[in-house]
Design a protein around this nucleic acid. Structure first.
Length: 397
RNA sequence: GCGCCGGUGGUAGAGCGGUCAAUUACAACAGACUGUAAAUCUGUCGCCCUAUGGGCUCCGUAGGUUCAAAUCCUACCCGGCGCACCA
């Protein structure tokens, strides 16, 4: 184990070649040297249990951690359960704190969702999970004072978000200055060699670097990964931009969500979210956007739902959207004397009768034989398959 | 505690006595088109109905003024800013 491994070298090169690592502190050279020295490095990735809307931007960081784990490093997934209850400074405002139950539930949900992406059960080198309440909850006020003496107010207010708030006259709560401190102390408490984070977390990660140097005289590496953005528009992948893809959905839905992303996202997805060798990139991109996107979507679905599901998802997508067909597994509903609209509301397919009337007048409702339904009071025969819009399918039994 | 400002639909954010179920943008939904659940164009976007019409609910909460309130008044709750208090 303590010798330089050619295979590892190749793998590390490949990892960096994807261009998803934007910053390394103190330097890339130092890190590569350390990784190749055959020493097992202890690295952590902090996750925020204030929410469970896990999208590809999170997923790709987890994938990166898995890669490091496979290279033999000690990999820690750290839940900021203590910090989540305090509230992280947000761009615009102070974030609300969560209850303990919320945080616990969220953490379980995170683990469920990321489990396909990182191995917590490997026999020799499993990824481990820790919680920062383990140490942060135990600090005394004196400890906190002593920690905070390592930073100046000037360093804290230097942050963009604080500058912005100062300018706007929005509040900056004192405890928000503690956040980088707490996150920095995570590094000390776990005595890590490195931290992986998104570029948005560099400030916090670097405060950990400062603390490690001051308190332990140790050089902590910080590896910052890019945030996935649309190269054409510069917009980050996010729900509000209509480009957020959440991983907690069925194979079919995930595949569809990926296919519907704008074409300029193909390359970032390839680089960030797949591990298809870089050598194949040009060949894949040369196949045109549709093929390339499908290939990438399939690879991503495979990582989360497995090979078989990824194949079915692609087939279902082609059958349903490219050919206008009907997927296999559709909701079956029984009328039982109620009107169609009533049954659909009950099944959660539509929200209200008003919505139903709208859909009918928009000619969004048709049978599988392409007959348009124009009467809201239409009573379908048993066995009829109804398409409502592009994505809603119902079979009457 | 005092003063000032604000709380509007999924979000941002107009409106500030009738013409407001509430401008606009984003999100969402639908149609056309398409390789696509993309882009673009078009339409829709509180609920209910015996429907080119009618009814109900809605602008922090509760009252009030008025023929009429999201719009004015009062109280309360919540948020922000400033000042003070911290004998």
């Amino acid at each position: 184990m303590a010798f330089m491994n050619k295979v590892d070298q190749k793998r590390i090169d490949e990892l960096f070649a994807r261009g998803t690592v934007t910053d390394i502190f103190p330097s890339k050279e130092a890190l590569t040297k350390k990784l190749l020295a055959g020493e097992k490095i202890k690295i952590y990735l902090g996750l925020d249990p204030t929410h469970t809307a896990i999208h590809l931007g999170h997923a790709k960081n987890i994938m990166f951690m898995e890669e490091l784990r496979q290279l033999g490093n000690e990999v820690i997934i750290l839940f900021g359960d203590f910090t989540a209850r305090i509230g992280d400074p947000d761009k615009a405002s102070t974030r609300k704190a969560l209850s303990e139950e919320d945080v616990t539930r969220n953490m379980a949900d995170w683990v469920r969702q990321i489990s396909p992406l990182i191995d917590f059960n490997d026999k020799t080198n499993p990824a481990t999970i820790r919680h920062n309440s383990e140490w942060l909850a135990k600090l005394s006020f004196a400890d906190v004072l002593s920690l905070s003496s390592n930073f100046t107010v000037q360093q804290m207010i230097e942050r963009d978000m604080f500058q912005k708030r100062l300018k706007e006259g929005s509040p900056i709560h004192l405890h928000e200055f503690m956040y980088p401190l707490m996150q920095g102390y995570d590094s000390v408490a776990m005595d890590v060699d490195a931290e992986l984070c998104g570029t948005d977390q560099i400030f916090n990660a670097l405060s950990g670097r400062t603390l490690m140097k001051k308190l332990k005289d140790k050089e902590k590496f910080v590896i910052a990964l890019n945030l996935i953005a649309n190269p054409a528009t510069g917009q980050l992948m996010s729900k509000s931009n209509g480009t957020g893809v959440f991983i907690d959905q069925s194979a079919n839905d995930l595949f569809g969500a990926l296919m519907s992303l704008p074409d300029p996202m193909i390359e970032p997805l390839f680089l960030n979210c797949t591990r298809i060798p870089m050598g194949e990139k040009d060949m894949i991109m040369a196949q045109g956007p549709r093929m390339a996107k499908a290939l990438i979507a399939k690879d991503i679905v495979k990582r989360i739902h497995g090979e078989a599901a990824s194949v079915t998802a692609e087939e279902a997508f082609i059958a349903t959207f490219a050919k206008g067909g009907v997927p296999d597994d559709i909701l079956e509903i029984k009328l039982d004397g109620a009107t169609l609209a009533e049954v659909l509301i009950k099944a959660g397919v539509i929200e209200s009768k008003t919505e139903w009337r709208r859909l009918v007048t928009d000619t969004a409702v048709r049978t599988d034989r392409d007959e348009k339904i124009t009467d809201p009071t239409y009573v379908p025969a048993s066995g009829t398959i109804l398409k409502i819009g592009k994505r809603r399918f119902v079979k009457i039994i």
